[in-house]
């Protein structure tokens, strides 16, 4: 019955007969379904990703989470972009802009199917990493941007 704790509070805070009627109707169906055993609508996580896949929502991979926490230290000082230019790098996305975009815009890129169009020209020389005063693994951010779902 722990699952139904607070029921008294809920009923006393119901504000109208219409709300009460809806609660009772939905509640009875819910209890009946619970008594009849679990529902048969499949894996809820799979349903979640079916529902939200078109919005770009994916499970957060460990790499994604690590980069998010690392990249948030960015000062937007631009030293990575100087080091990249000095090393002759020509990524489609400047390393500074990649760090800024990490976790901010990934979901949008996925939603619009643009993943893989940003960081693919980064040669991975890691000159940017050595130039970062905050120790952000910038070239990994570039790689994560270039990678498809599941990796980034």
């Amino acid at each position: 019955m722990r699952g139904y704790r607070g029921i008294f509070h809920e009923f006393t805070h119901t504000g109208s007969w219409r709300a009460l009627a809806l609660q009772l109707r939905t509640g009875i169906v819910h209890v009946a379904r619970q008594l009849a055993g679990r529902r048969d609508d499949g894996d809820p996580l799979a349903r979640f990703f079916d529902n939200y896949g078109p919005d770009g929502v994916r499970p957060a991979s460990p790499v994604d989470r690590m980069l998010r926490l690392d990249a948030q230290a960015c000062l937007v000082c631009g030293l990575c972009s100087v080091a990249c230019a000095a090393a002759g790098g020509e990524p489609r996305l400047d390393p500074r802009d990649a760090v800024v975009a990490a976790s901010r815009l990934h979901i949008e890129w996925r939603r619009l199917g643009l993943e893989g169009t940003a960081g693919s020209a980064c040669a991975g020389c890691a000159a940017c990493d050595a130039a970062c005063p905050q120790g952000i693994p910038i070239h990994e951010v570039q790689e994560a941007l270039a990678a498809g779902p599941g990796k980034g």
């Binding site: 699952g3 139904y4 704790r5 607070g6 809920e10 609660q23 939905t26 819910h30 809820p44 529902n51």
Partner: peptide
């Protein structure tokens, strides 16, 4: 939490009926 999951789910089941009006998705229980 003061309100149990079954009651929360009843609330979300009520809400599910309105979700299509705003292009929303039905709830899931994990």
């Amino acid at each position: 939490d003061p309100i149990g999951p079954e009651l929360v789910e009843v609330g979300l089941e009520m809400y599910d009926a309105y979700q299509p009006l705003k292009n929303g998705r039905p709830h899931t229980r994990l």
